[in-house]
Amino acid sequence: MGSRAHAEGDRWSDIDLTFAVADTTKPVAVLDEWAEKLRTQFDGTALFDLAADPITYRVFLLPGALQVDVSVTPTSQFAARGDTFRLLFGEVNDPIAAAPRDNTDAFGHAVHHAVRARVCIERGRALQAEYWISSLRNETLTLASRRAGVQDWHARGAHLLPAETRERFAEALVRSLDPAELSRALTVAIDLLLDESDHAPALAARVENHLRTLTGTPH
């Protein structure tokens, strides 16, 4: 699975391997065996585990900045959960379509991030303000990607967005920690979010004036 499942990838592509294991097997025990092999044979370093029921992932870093993700799933639940899956051997259950994250939830998180960004600017916490502005921009990028029909997970399809859209998101980047610049970037990011209000019309209608107030332009 991963970028090499249906394409050649490039020198920066990571490697994703997933295995079915007996339902009674402890996933961590299997991943520990992989960790030892990758460490001794390839000088690999385990970075972290991620549990996404029923799948357990372990992420490794190998020399040359090669990322290798190894995951295990109980056999009874082993199935493709996306279009970057290719079965190499064995059997697999019917594909499972993962439910996309709710648009209203994403919009609500973005509103929260906008509020926190303004609070941090007013308190003189520039680095924290930048963090929240970036978080706001990223949530909005998810919504914009869905509108365009490209992959929204971790901005994987952002490069496929229309040039005008990409340029507008670039304008929301924070260029310095000066309070005026932070406020400018926040205003652009909020405008971008409001452009995506049809993803969550009821919520957007209730919070639009609050968001405008954060930019100094209440309606």
Score class of each variant (00 low, 15 high):
residue 147 R to S: 05
residue 153 W to E: 12
residue 129 A to K: 00
residue 164 E to P: 01
residue 91 E to N: 12
residue 56 T to G: 02
residue 55 I to V: 15
residue 166 R to H: 13
residue 62 L to D: 08
residue 57 Y to A: 02
residue 64 G to Y: 11
residue 145 S to D: 05
residue 59 V to Y: 15
residue 167 E to V: 04
residue 111 V to C: 05
residue 155 A to R: 06
residue 137 R to C: 02
residue 57 Y to R: 07
residue 140 T to W: 11
residue 48 F to C: 12
residue 104 T to N: 06
residue 174 V to Y: 11
residue 68 V to M: 14
residue 53 D to G: 06
residue 134 S to V: 05
residue 87 L to S: 14
residue 97 A to F: 08
residue 137 R to A: 11
residue 119 V to I: 11
residue 129 A to H: 00
residue 48 F to V: 14
residue 166 R to D: 10
residue 119 V to S: 03
residue 165 T to P: 07
residue 66 L to K: 15
residue 66 L to E: 14
residue 63 P to E: 08
residue 131 Y to F: 06
residue 164 E to F: 04
residue 61 L to M: 14
residue 82 G to F: 08
residue 148 A to P: 06
residue 104 T to S: 08
residue 61 L to R: 14
residue 99 A to S: 06
residue 132 W to H: 11
residue 128 Q to S: 08
residue 177 L to D: 08
residue 132 W to E: 10
residue 66 L to W: 07
residue 169 F to S: 06
residue 62 L to I: 10
residue 66 L to N: 09
residue 81 R to P: 03
residue 148 A to I: 05
residue 130 E to L: 07
residue 90 G to A: 14
residue 133 I to G: 00
residue 117 A to E: 00
residue 154 H to P: 03
residue 79 A to N: 12
residue 100 P to W: 03
residue 147 R to H: 04
residue 79 A to G: 04
residue 101 R to E: 15
residue 118 R to T: 03
residue 163 A to Y: 13
residue 53 D to W: 13
residue 112 H to V: 01
residue 83 D to V: 09
residue 118 R to C: 05
residue 169 F to R: 07
residue 52 A to T: 13
residue 152 D to R: 01
residue 67 Q to V: 09
residue 139 E to P: 00
residue 130 E to F: 00
residue 63 P to V: 05
residue 136 L to H: 01
residue 126 A to W: 00
residue 155 A to G: 04
residue 138 N to S: 09
residue 138 N to C: 00
residue 64 G to E: 15
residue 68 V to P: 09
residue 66 L to I: 14
residue 56 T to F: 11
residue 104 T to I: 02
residue 73 T to E: 14
residue 56 T to P: 04
residue 59 V to S: 14
residue 110 A to W: 02
residue 136 L to I: 05
residue 150 V to H: 07
residue 154 H to T: 04
residue 93 N to H: 15
residue 64 G to D: 13
residue 60 F to I: 03
residue 100 P to V: 04
residue 173 L to I: 03
residue 132 W to Y: 09
residue 68 V to C: 13
residue 127 L to H: 10
residue 82 G to L: 09
residue 133 I to V: 03
residue 151 Q to H: 12
residue 113 H to W: 10
residue 151 Q to L: 15
residue 80 A to H: 10
residue 164 E to A: 13
residue 82 G to P: 06
residue 48 F to W: 11
residue 67 Q to F: 03
residue 153 W to P: 01
residue 171 E to P: 02
residue 76 S to I: 04
residue 121 I to P: 10
residue 49 D to K: 11
residue 81 R to E: 15
residue 109 H to I: 08
residue 163 A to I: 11
residue 117 A to C: 03
residue 99 A to I: 07
residue 60 F to P: 01
residue 149 G to R: 06
residue 69 D to V: 05
residue 140 T to V: 15
residue 101 R to N: 07
residue 126 A to F: 00
